[in-house]
């Protein structure tokens, strides 16, 4: 139980640490990265369910980014180890429903159901890798700044930033509380129902008071409805180029089965 909370705190910290790294990818503006990620996920999801080979070409984007940013792929998969099984389970029923033979390798017949299953799994993993890469190379402040630039409501952006900063504080507090509770209730799994209300309720009340203090201190430091984001960098042509090249590449891969084309150059 406690490990669960500690793991989450660790995860949040680790993402923060990764995002404050320095590499070519880290230096690209948050807006450009956000755009590329959204376009990438949109393109990946829009592939036809039997177009496995065409989709495979899209793997080059995460691979290239992992390499350039210096973030080990293993970190990504280690962090996603609890979500990956869920994603991989997507479409696991498909081979049973769709048994239309597509082609045969030796005596083994590959059905379209198997192909659509693999395609779905690939889609899931690619999307996960893309969002992981965005978060691992972009600081949350920069991301919020970018969201503000595309005119996301100020309230929502500030709320997101505050919630993120507060989630770690809160998780730590919950961790301390559950630890104290479990030490006084040995051998008990979870919180007993007699304490359901008071456990979280106490935390809630204390936090509400804390929120009032937080707001007072914000006002004292000159808050008047808008946060200032530290990203002073002007949008450079490099960022535009970055976004344009990737978007064009994704579009090309979506329209033409590049994997197939690559294969054709060898097999005539």
């Amino acid at each position: 139980m406690n490990q669960n909370i500690e793991r989450s705190i660790h995860d949040l910290r680790e993402m923060d640490a990764l995002a404050s790294g320095d590499s070519m990818v880290h230096r690209v503006s948050a807006g450009a990265k956000l755009l590329v990620t959204v376009v990438y996920i949109g393109t990946v999801v829009s592939f036809a369910k039997l177009n496995m080979t065409g989709l495979l070409f899209m793997v080059l984007y995460p691979v290239l980014l992992f390499t350039v940013s210096g973030i080990p792929i293993s970190t990504c998969f280690y962090k996603l180890r609890f979500v990956l099984p869920l994603v991989l389970f997507v479409g696991v029923f498909n081979p049973f429903f769709d048994r239309t033979p597509a082609f045969a390798i030796g005596s083994f017949t590959v059905t379209t159901g198997m192909i659509s299953m693999v395609t779905l799994m690939m889609k899931g993993v690619f999307c996960l890798m893309a969002s992981f890469l965005l978060m691992a190379t972009t600081r949350i402040e920069a991301l919020c700044g970018a969201l503000r630039k595309i005119h996301m409501p100020q309230m929502l952006v500030t709320l997101l930033l505050l919630t993120f900063r507060y989630a770690a504080v809160m998780a730590e507090e919950v961790n301390v509380m559950t630890q104290a509770y479990s030490l006084r209730a040995p051998g008990q799994k979870g919180i007993h129902y007699t304490a359901w209300g008071s456990f979280l309720g106490q935390l809630l009340l204390r936090s509400m008071d804390r929120a009032d203090e937080l707001y007072s201190s914000m006002l004292l430091r000159g808050y008047h409805g808008e946060f200032y984001y530290a990203e002073t960098k002007k949008r450079s042509s490099g960022d535009t180029l970055y976004a344009a090249i990737w978007c064009a590449a994704f579009l090309a891969a979506r329209c033409v089965n590049l994997t197939q084309v690559l294969g054709m150059t060898v097999v005539r």
Binding site: M1, N4, I5, S8, M155, T158, L159, L162, T163, Y166, A167, V169, M170, A171, E173, V174, T178, Q188, K189, G190, I191, H192, Y193, W196, F199, L200, L203, L204, S207, M208, R210, A211, D212, L214, Y215, M218, G225
Partner: peptide
């Protein structure tokens, strides 16, 4: 109601943290 902003942030952080707590349901284990 800008004053609500920190309260909202705290409440959503609480929900986030609250999701990590296990609640024992009696009779089912």
């Amino acid at each position: 109601n800008t004053q609500k902003l920190p309260t909202m942030a705290v409440a959503s952080a609480l929900v986030f943290a609250g999701q990590m707590i296990n609640y024992t349901i009696p009779g089912t284990g």
